[in-house]
Write a protein that binds this DNA or RNA. Structure first.
Length: 935
RNA sequence: GGGCGGUUAGCUCAGCGGUAGAGCGCUACCUUCACACGGUAGAUGUCGCAAGUUCGAUCCUUGCACCGCCCACCA
């Protein structure tokens, strides 16, 4: 083995081996355990969030597979309608053309081509993270089987009366030219204005003043509303106003929606371009007057002067014109929330359009779809981890709106609906099926609906569509192999746990619950683990324009400064931003990013994965875990070095010969028990910490050191037994660590396992270790604690008295009892080796006590004679300091024990514990006090 | 407006009713035959503020302050 751990050389070797040998496929007759990968965008690239989330899934999958569960990690990618279409549209634009020039069919062909080129980028990146996913079952949301599932679900919901088509006000993205759902709209605070405009009452000198942030929409006003009990205006209700600039006559209506205290208490009503106004309009039977085209220009319903103007140009002109006629009463700055499309940053324009909806709000929609989804979480059939997210989930479902599922795009699942020349709707899996299920025969030719479905519609079916539903056994991959069989694969439903981010609880999680319950009567998963969001070391969101993103692959492989700068600034078009980012990177990573390897990156993710909702990724922390990998590596080197060919190794089943072995096996069992708990609770941070501490602070710091005297001593039995225990604990802890750090554990295990006559192709094929496999020994544990205490005392004296670490010293023990004497005998070689002692003796009762530095273990004094080593004053000062500290502790104990209410009310064991503490401190204080007196 | 988090060592975070912890960083000493990606010893905290419950509160309750996120938004 090399002197230090070099991750690069082993990672691809083992990944290729595992994948090509089918190690990631479900196997065995154990309990089904399925994890669904949230399918990433097919043309995307891996970011830190993916890497973190996938590491968590991979740890679970590897753990359960080793536990013998029939484990399936279902992977795949999402066609990501808008995102993917946009990329290809940008490519076309760069080439000086556009999708309309190409035509729909050619455009879609072009997208498929792009998918073919870049679709495996992210899955190959996933492989670098080490993900043990069954790639032979990889799916794509637009593959044949999933498309069949989409059609079947759409048609079934339609026939069950749960999908409808309607002309509704929807969030319209005028740049992308499509409707988007409520969830795809962000409200962003922007500086704007509030304008007050005077509307004259027809045939009167009176007028009302309305306030608006969007004066251009006045072109579509059909009323002005006041509160029914607002006495300022009751006399005007029912009267008519003349809409300035337009001249149209509009009524004054009364509606409780109006807040009397806000503005003037008069609200202009534009039902076709505002969601609240739309509701008011419905209540009052008002006309919906659309005044914008689909690309947000003023249409022909407006006066000629404004037609064709963009909505913001129209706003300017209208304000000028209002000013000119004296109708503009006031202009003041106003902060407002602007609805912005997530995908294009365009300001959303509410538009009346024909769209398809899933009914989630009618009595039937609630009973059949949204209600059961709510109930599944309320009843505990689905459990959120951490639990508080179930509240978020429930509140959204309680206030849910119908789901607008149609998108005016080309890339996606085209809606299986046709229209005849009379406008009748025909829905079916194909044209013939649609006609066959219709009440009436079509009038003339059928035309297919041009729209596609929201990307999340197909994602919602992921839990069962990937298992082969509804084309049982008929879906084959390019190699002609069947990828999924619903009749046999449905054992993986419900899946065990969904690992995902809170940002898609509504987009995805809730919709999977709705669809899966409806079509399979099963919940899609039993648990939902909501992982944290990854931020930079300062807690800032990672963003390319800030220059604080990290590419997980750069952490794994390392990257020099110049390539890092080049890559981080490449896509940035604004020079100021580019300069800022470059400056930041040169400051943050003056030497580039060191290669830490996949294992260290994964360990870091595990160590950061507490229940908190954000994690701040700090490279220095990752470097620390790289050191851990190196530590493990070198521990293995030490072990292997000591079990070379002719070294005797005790036979399997031989009881451990030394207390040190019994102690480390005890600690191993305890650690494994903790690890099992932490896996069950998804506390990967505690899991990582428990294993880290065991390996470093116990196995390496103490056990390896304790084996040295045994390995080099005369007792052949002890040496042989020690070799077996060294190997056993190492082999076991490698398996325990494998789900977290798969590569290094496999690499080392290959060398270690054969020494124990364990033969398997891969560590993945071996069972996960269980606490019960190792017997515990409380006596041995206490013995080693004693040894550690004595050595700590000796080392502290050395350090504080400035005795060179390598200088041999004499040890004198005094006042101990029989058990101290026995332990001193047992551990004599260890004490000599670890304490660098030239001699160790018990102080004879009759002998004069030499001047010595002291520390106390229980009843026993640990003495280092001072002669020639140190001066008395230094030791006196040291003892005085120590006694003072102990007296502080005693004072605390006295305070408690002197309080009658504490003694009376606290549990007996707490009081007993406090008394014991008091005794221990007092013994120490007395012993050190005596020592000081002697000096 | 409704909801959910957070505030603990210089930094990043665990702990959550009974002696304040980890990693990184810091100080001193040590190239000892697994490892300097190392070893040994050490320093560092009125656990956001205030009141309450309790024998006892970093931990429970209430209020407050600051930071953050989600949802809904008065035109």
């Amino acid at each position: 083995m090399d002197k230090s751990f070099e991750p690069g050389t082993i990672e691809s070797k083992w990944y290729d081996y595992w994948e090509s040998h089918g190690c990631f496929k479900p196997a065995g007759n154990g309990e089904p355990y399925c994890v669904l990968l949230p399918p990433p965008n097919v043309t995307g690239t891996l970011h830190m969030g993916h890497a973190f989330q996938q590491t968590i899934m991979d740890m679970l999958v590897r753990y359960h597979r080793m536990r013998g569960d029939n484990t399936l990690w279902q992977v795949g990618t999402d066609h990501a309608g808008i995102a993917t279409q946009k990329i290809v549209e940008n490519q076309l634009a760069a080439a000086g053309t556009d999708k309309h020039a190409l035509g729909r069919e050619a455009f879609i062909e072009r997208v498929w081509q792009w998918k073919g080129e870049s679709g495996s980028t992210i899955t190959n990146q996933m492989r670098r993270i080490g993900t043990a996913a069954d790639w032979s079952r990889e799916r794509f949301t637009m593959d044949e089987g999933l498309s069949a599932a989409v059609r079947k679900v759409f048609v079934q919901w339609y026939r069950d009366g749960l999908i409808y088509r309607g002309n509704r006000l929807v969030n319209w993205d005028p740049v992308l030219g499509t409707a988007v759902s409520d969830l795809e709209v962000n409200n962003v605070e922007r500086d704007g204005h509030m304008w007050s405009i005077r509307y004259p009452v027809a045939g009167s000198d009176e007028s009302v003043v309305i306030a608006t942030t969007r004066p251009e929409t006045m072109l579509g006003d059909v009323a002005v509303a006041v509160h029914p009990e607002d006495e300022r205006y009751t006399h005007l209700v029912g009267k008519t106003l003349t809409l300035p600039l337009v001249g149209r006559q509009i009524p004054v209506i009364a509606d409780e929606y109006v807040e009397r205290d806000f503005g003037t208490g008069c609200v202009k009503i534009t039902p076709a371009h505002d969601f609240n106004d739309y509701e008011v309009g419905k209540r009052h039977g008002l006309e919906n007057l659309t005044i914008f085209t689909l690309d947000a220009k003023v249409n022909d319903n407006a006066p000629a002067a404004y037609r064709g103007l963009d909505r913001y140009e129209a706003r300017k002109k209208i304000l000028i014109d209002l000013e000119a006629i004296g109708a503009l009463v006031e202009t003041k700055p106003h902060k407002l929330q602007v609805p912005v499309s997530q995908r294009s940053d365009a300001v959303i324009e509410p538009m009346l359009t024909d769209q398809w909806f899933v009914d989630l709000t009618s009595a039937k929609g609630r009973e059949k779809i949204s209600g059961p989804a709510l109930e599944a979480v309320r009843s505990g059939q689905i459990r959120f981890v951490p639990d508080n997210w179930s509240k978020t989930y429930a509140q959204w479902l309680e206030n849910i709106q119908d789901w607008c599922i149609s998108r005016q795009l080309w890339w996606g699942h085209q809606i299986p609906a046709w229209y005849d020349e009379a406008g009748n709707i025909f829905v079916g899996e194909g044209e013939a099926d649609a006609i066959a299920h219709a009440m009436t025969a079509p009038v003339g030719a059928l035309t297919r609906d041009a729209d596609v479905l929201d990307t999340w519609f197909s994602s919602a079916l992921w839990p069962f569509s990937t298992l082969g539903w509804p084309l049982d056994g008929a879906v084959k991959n390019d190699a002609g192999q069947i990828v999924a069989n619903w009749s046999t694969d449905k054992i993986y439903l419900p899946s065990a746990v969904l690992v995902t981010g809170f940002d898609i609880i509504f987009f995805w999680v809730a919709r999977m619950v709705m669809a899966t319950l409806y079509f399979t009567d099963e919940v899609p998963f039993r648990e939902v683990y909501i992982n944290a969001i990854v931020r930079d070391a300062e807690g800032q969101k990672m963003s390319k324009s800030k220059g604080n993103t990290l590419d997980p692959l750069d952490l794994i492989d390392g990257i020099e400064l110049e390539p890092l700068v080049a890559k981080s600034t490449k896509a940035l078009l604004i020079p100021q931003v580019r300069d800022k980012v470059e400056k930041r990177i040169r400051k943050d990573y003056p030497d580039g990013i060191p290669a830490i390897g996949t294992d260290a990156l994964r360990f870091t993710f595990a160590a950061l994965a507490s229940y908190s909702r954000t994690i701040n990724f700090d490279i220095s922390r990752a470097e620390g875990y790289k050191a851990f990998c190196n530590k493990l590596w070198n521990a293995a080197r030490f072990v292997l070095m000591n079990v070379d060919d002719d070294a005797a190794i005790a036979a399997a089943g031989t009881p451990p010969a030394t207390a040190a072995e019994r102690w480390i096996l005890t600690r191993l069992a305890q650690t494994l028990a903790e690890v099992e708990q932490h896996f069950a609770n998804y506390r990967f941070d505690h899991l990582a910490q428990a294993l880290y501490e065991f390996v470093w602070n116990e196995y390496c710091d103490w056990f390896l050191e304790l084996t040295k005297p045994a390995l080099n001593g005369d007792d052949a039995t002890a040496a042989a037994s020690t070799r077996r225990t060294l190997l056993t604990v190492l082999e076991t802890v490698l398996r325990a660590l494998h789900p977290v750090i798969p590569f290094i554990t496999e690499e080392i295990w290959q060398d270690v396992a054969p020494r124990l006559d364990i033969h398997a192709d891969t560590i993945m094929a071996r069972p996960y270790p269980q606490a019960g496999e190792f017997s515990t020994d409380a006596t041995a544990a206490a013995d080693v604690e004693w040894l550690k205490a004595v050595l700590s005392g000796v080392r502290r004296i050395r350090a504080e008295m400035n005795i060179a670490p390598g200088k041999p010293i004499d040890l004198l023990l005094a006042d101990g009892d029989a058990s101290d004497r026995q332990r001193a005998d047992t551990f004599a070689p260890s004490l000599a080796f670890l304490g660098r002692l030239s001699s160790q003796n018990w102080l004879q009762a009759s002998a004069d006590e030499p001047a010595a530095a002291a520390s106390v273990v229980g009843q026993m004094r640990v003495l280092i004679p001072l002669a020639g080593l140190i001066d008395l004053d230094a030791e006196k000062a040291r003892l005085t300091r120590e006694i003072k500290r102990i007296e502080g502790e005693i004072k605390k104990c006295e305070g408690k024990l002197g309080n009658a209410r504490f003694v009376d009310n606290a549990p007996a064991e707490v009081v007993a514990q406090e008394r014991q503490r008091m005794t221990d401190w007092s013994t120490q204080r007395d012993a050190l006090g005596d020592q000081l007196a002697r000096l």
